[in-house]
Amino acid sequence: MNRVACRVLSLLALSLPSSAAPTDRAAQERAVLDRDVPGLLAEYKIPGVSIAQIENGRLAFAVAYGTQSDGVPATTKTLYNIASLTKPISAEVVLRLVSEGTFTLDDPLDAVWSDPDLAGDERRKLLTPRIGLSHQTGFPNWRRKQPLAFTFTPGTAVSYSGEGYEYVARFAEKKTGVGFEALAERLVFKPLHMAQTAYTDRPWFAGRIATPTSADGRAIAYTANTKYFASDLIHTTPTDYAKFVVGVMRDEGLTKAIAAERRRVQGNTKEQECKTEKRRAACADDVGFGLGWEVNRFGDTTILHHGGRDEGVATYVVADVTRGDATILFTNSDNGLNLLLPLLERLGADARFVAYMRSAL
C-alpha cells in the first residue's frame, strides 16, 4: 500500500476519529450496521459490541450497540478485555526494540534470561524473539500449575503459546532493565496516542468495563488485573486499538526490514489449516503466524488478523494491509465471534479471506 510521506500528517490522521467527515462509503456502511447489528445481537444473544472501521489507512468510524452491562449502553468509550489481541501489541513493543537496535530477532534469549524450569534442558538455548513471537517455542499455551517444559524442539514446529510471549517479555525486561508496561508506554502507547489502553487496572476503568457474559447470558464479574500479561488481558477501546492498527499499517516505529518481517509468515501452518477439501478450496497462498499476527496472503494481498477469547469475551481484528482497510470487533460475550463474518461481509472485506474463514465452519 502507499505510505504517508509526512510523519506530521500521519500523526494527525491517527488522532482523527469521529471528528472527520465520513465518506460516502463509511456513511453507507454505518447505515447498514445501524439497520442490521441490533438484530444480530438479539439473534446470537450478545449483550453488546463496539466496532471500529479503518478505510484507506485512517479511522472511518467507530460505533457501539447494545449494553456494556445491565442497563448501561455500550459506547465507543466502553473498555473491553481484548484477550489475545494483547499479543500484537506486545509483539510491537519487541519489534520496536529490535528496530532501535536493542537486540535482534535472532538473539538467543538464554544469553540474558532463562526460566528456572528449563535449567536442565539445553534446548532453551535455541529460543529467540522470532521463535517466541511466531509460536514456535514448543511451550504449551499455558503452564498452569505445571513446570514449564518443551513439547517439541524450538523452531521445528508451530503451536500457539501464550507462554512464548511471556518468555520474550521477560527477556525484553532483563535486556533493557525496564518493566514491560513502561516499555509499552514509551514505544507504543505514547507515540500512537493510545491513552485508553492498559495492561493492568487503572482508576479510569471505573464505570467503563464491558461486563463479560457467558453463552447463556450469565454475567461474569470483572476481576482487577494487578499483574501484566504480555499475551492477554489488556483493556482498551476499539478507537484506541484502531490507532494501533493504523500504526501497524504505516509501519510506524519500525525499520523497513523489520516491517517486512512482520508481514510475512514465520511459522507456516498451511498444511495443518487446510487439510479438508473444503478448506483447501478456499486456502490462502500463505497461511501461518507472523510476528504478533496471523498472516494470510492471497496473491499480492496480505491480511493480518488475530482473535481473542477469554471467559465471557470475544474479539477480532482483520487488517488488509495492502488496501489499508481493517475491521475491529470487540464483544462482551462468549457468542461474540458469531458476528465476525456477517460484519466482514457488510463492511466489504476481501471476499477471499471471508471465504477462507467461512470454510472453517
Score class of each variant (00 low, 15 high):
E122T: 06
A221V: 14
R264M: 08
R352H: 10
R323Q: 14
V248A: 00
T137Q: 13
F205M: 09
T226A: 13
S333V: 08
R35F: 03
A20P: 01
T223R: 15
V321M: 07
F103K: 02
H193K: 07
V313L: 01
Q196K: 11
P47W: 04
D36M: 12
I89M: 07
G155P: 11
T176V: 03
G292F: 03
D107S: 08
R264T: 09
Y316T: 02
L11F: 12
A172M: 01
F289H: 13
K243S: 01
D285I: 07
E122K: 11
L329Q: 08
I89C: 02
F180P: 00
F298V: 04
I89E: 00
T23I: 08
L127S: 08
F229I: 00
V313R: 05
Q196I: 00
A26H: 11
R58P: 03
G66Y: 08
D36Q: 12
V287D: 15
V295K: 03
I234H: 05
P140W: 13
A351P: 06
A215F: 06
G179N: 14
A149N: 10
T211F: 02
T78D: 10
F171D: 00
S50Y: 07
S99Y: 01
R30M: 15
S99L: 01
A360S: 09
P212K: 10
T176H: 03
Y241N: 10
P38M: 09
F353E: 09
G138L: 11
V168I: 15
A60P: 06
A319M: 05
K256H: 02
A111H: 13
L337H: 15
K174P: 00
T197S: 09
A74H: 13
N2A: 13
Y44Q: 12
V8H: 13
L343H: 05
S214P: 04
P116D: 14
A282G: 10
D115P: 02
A172H: 02
V317P: 12
A351R: 14
Y80V: 05
Q272G: 03
F353K: 01
C274Q: 07
F330K: 09
D106K: 00
A319R: 10
L291Q: 00
R58K: 13
D70H: 05
A13C: 04
E277K: 14
I51L: 12
L11W: 04
A157I: 03
T67K: 10
E166G: 08
A351I: 01
A64D: 11
L79C: 12
M1T: 10
R96D: 04
W204P: 02
T78I: 07
V295R: 03
A215K: 14
W113M: 11
I51T: 03
K243D: 00
T327A: 07
A83G: 05
G292L: 04
K256A: 08
L347Y: 07
W293A: 06
E43F: 06
K270R: 11
D334N: 15
T276F: 05
S231L: 04
S90A: 14
K77W: 04
V178H: 05
A169C: 02
L97I: 01
G324N: 03
T301M: 03
K174S: 07
T78E: 09
C6W: 08
R202I: 01
F150Y: 14
N141H: 14
P154M: 13
S10T: 08
P17H: 06
H235L: 11
L254N: 02
G253N: 03
L183W: 01
G66F: 08
I220K: 15
Y228N: 07
P116Q: 13
E311K: 11
R297Y: 05
A13H: 11
C6R: 12
T255L: 00
M249S: 01
